[in-house]
Design a protein around this nucleic acid. Structure first.
Length: 559
RNA sequence: GUCCCCGUAGCUCAGUAGGAUAGAGCGUAGGAUUCCUAAUCCUAAGGCCAGAGGUUCGAAUCCUCUCGGGGACGCCA
């Protein structure tokens, strides 16, 4: 519908341009939806923008635009008005709107999909939690947002690869190994204590117990200390990574790639090439981006737009994790991705500019790189914040939340807010099967439609597009208009990497449907009208189904 | 101190490439079901868009400053 208006207005402006000998009036027609019904179905401010360029009175320009609309517009609009300072308001003929309804059913599952991305290869990295513990609610938000962004981009014509970067190298992993080993020794009465800054959660003890069950006291001899710690580290890592994978799968999230930092960055690359760390260091050196200072090797990030320089190689000769991060992201470019998107916790926002600086230093196009920053989640129960202490290891895990509320509810609650907004997640409220819970509201709309079709089947009625002209109620026209908005919502959501927009849209659509349902009977004596209405709600069902599909939330036939 | 995000109804939040009289849900008050699922609907009250300047035909939206909340600023990851 908006495209139709854009087309006729552009044509009109072109006509005007010819008449007054101004062939190149640069115009973008932005079609808006007025808040008030008196202002029509659609409106444009083109006249006001054009007036500025032409040095003319906006209302006069608006008149010109209307006069020069092509004949086609007669068929589309019943009225075109000038209002306010120079808005042009379009009142669309009902049948022009109803005509568009068939589009939804023609496209079915692919209604809302587009080729916005043109097949561009995108690497979407998200979660990437250290395998040193269980996933918590913050990881869950990251995971769900990433997963849904992936769905939305895929539906919008991008070729998305979902990747989990396993931070399996570095001090944290060593600490994990040492912590497990300490607990293991405890089981034999050797009280060594968990190392400074180590992991203290109960799961560490459980892993230690599992190792004991498997190996007995084989790891105790003191001459095998390093070996034993390494064994504990690997065992724990495998256990925790498996648990992470299980939890994610339970939330409906699957990755295409699991990228191991230790293997790919620190070790030999999968193709057997040289160590990437050295490689990337040399490349930075060649670009003259490195400086030796105070016994350490620095990346001169300030030369590439960052506010300070950063250490790459510490004075003890070991690399910082930042160097590994650069190597990892350079690898993303080398793998041929035209879009690189990271989903990071907001606490990492300071890393964006320095990584960007590094990519620039290496000669990569950093405009291909973007980061979705996810703000924190505050877990609540009955309006009271649930204390989370990672140090003591006592915190509510993503698995706990899944067990309590299930994947549908968890996903929706984590998608309800824009990512850059702090989010309160109330476990009590999320469990309520009531009006306070928007997930059920949307699902209920879907189930209701299924129910109507069961009723229709019983009366031998089915959806029919033969008499769509009977759909003349304002509520029906509004409902159709809402359906026609859906592709735009998906596209907007893809462009701004903002999945919450789809969630909002679905709530609005469900509300429109519930309202319609309460006012009008779908299955009624008038068989022709019933057929048309069934066709309408079938389209509503299609859009609900497609939208819920993008969010990874189930659409139940009964509730 | 520097930088980033946020501040919109009692609560939780949408709305920010400038558009007309600022929205939703919850909560509150009242009402709707002999009929397709009441997990629903309808009505009402509720606002100095943190504050002050500025840009312009027009600002919740853009710029500057102030206040308040959160976060980041390591040879940690």
């Amino acid at each position: 519908m908006k495209e139709d208006i854009q087309r006729v207005v552009l044509e009109s402006v072109e006509n005007i341009g010819k008449k007054i000998n101004l062939s190149d009036l640069p115009v973008e027609v932005e079609v808006g939806i007025p808040k008030r019904k008196e202002f029509g179905d659609f409106s444009i401010n083109t006249a006001m923008i054009l007036a500025k360029k032409m040095g003319e009175n906006p209302r006069k320009v608006a008149e010109l635009i209307i006069e020069n609309l092509p004949p086609e517009s007669e068929r589309l609009f019943k009225k075109v008005d000038i209002a306010g300072a120079g808005f042009i308001n379009f009142f669309v003929r009902e049948n022009a709107i109803v005509d568009k309804l068939a589009e939804v059913e023609r496209l079915g599952e692919s209604y809302g999909a587009s080729n916005l991305g043109g097949g561009k290869k995108v690497l979407l990295e998200f979660v990437s939690a250290n395998p040193t513990g269980f996933l918590h609610i913050g990881h869950a938000r990251n995971a769900v947002v990433g997963d849904v962004v992936s769905n939305i981009l895929s539906a919008s014509g991008y070729d998305v690869t979902k990747e989990f970067y396993i931070n399996d190298a570095g001090r944290q992993m060593d600490l994990l190994g040492e912590s497990v080993y300490a607990r293991y020794r405890e089981l034999f009465g050797i009280d060594a204590g968990v190392p400074e800054g180590g992991y203290k959660g109960d799961y560490v003890k459980e892993i230690a117990a599992a190792i004991m069950a498997e190996k007995g006291d084989a790891l105790i001899p003191s001459d095998k200390f390093a070996e034993s710690v390494a064994y504990c580290r690997e065992y724990a890592e495998k256990t925790l990574l498996d648990s992470i994978k299980t939890d994610l799968a339970e939330a409906g999230i699957r990755f295409d790639e699991w990228y191991s930092e230790r293997k790919e960055i620190h070790g030999l690359s999968s193709s057997g090439g040289p160590k990437r760390l050295n490689e990337i260091k040399e490349r930075l050196r060649e670009k003259g981006a490195l400086e030796e200072r105070e016994g350490a090797l620095w990346f001169a990030a300030t030369r590439y737009g960052d506010s300070q320089d950063w250490v790459m190689i510490k004075s003890d000769g070991s690399p910082t994790y930042f160097l590994a991060d650069i190597a990892y992201h350079a690898d993303k470019y080398q793998r041929g991705f035209g879009g690189i998107i990271n989903v990071w916790g907001a606490d990492h926002h300071g890393h964006v500019s320095r990584l960007r600086a590094a990519l620039r230093a290496l000669g990569y196009d950093d405009s291909a790189f973007s980061v979705i920053l996810i703000q924190f989640v505050r877990l609540m129960r009955n309006g009271v914040e649930v204390a989370m202490s990672k140090r003591s290891g006592s915190y509510v895990t993503m698995r706990d939340v899944l067990t309590e509320v299930g994947p549908d509810v968890m996903r929706f609650f984590l998608l309800m807010r824009s990512s850059e907004s702090h989010l309160d997640f109330d476990l009590e409220l999320a469990q309520k099967e009531s009006s306070e819970n928007p997930v059920f509201y949307i699902q209920y709309a879907y189930a209701r439609i299924a129910s109507i079709f069961r009723k229709a089947d019983g009366e031998d009625l089915s959806a029919s597009d033969e008499a769509l002209g009977l759909l003349t109620e304002p509520d029906e026209i509004d409902l159709i208009k809402k359906l026609l908005l859906y592709p735009e919502v998906v596209a907007d959501s893809a462009e701004t990497l903002a999945p919450h927009k789809v969630a909002y849209f679905l709530q609005e659509l469900a509300a429109d449907f519930h309202s319609y349902y309460n006012k009008h009977r779908v299955v009624d004596d008038d068989r022709a009208l019933s057929g048309a209405r069934l066709y309408l709600i079938k389209s509503v069902r299609t859009v609900l189904s497609n939208g819920l599909g993008l969010l990874g939330i189930s659409a139940p036939d009964r509730m």
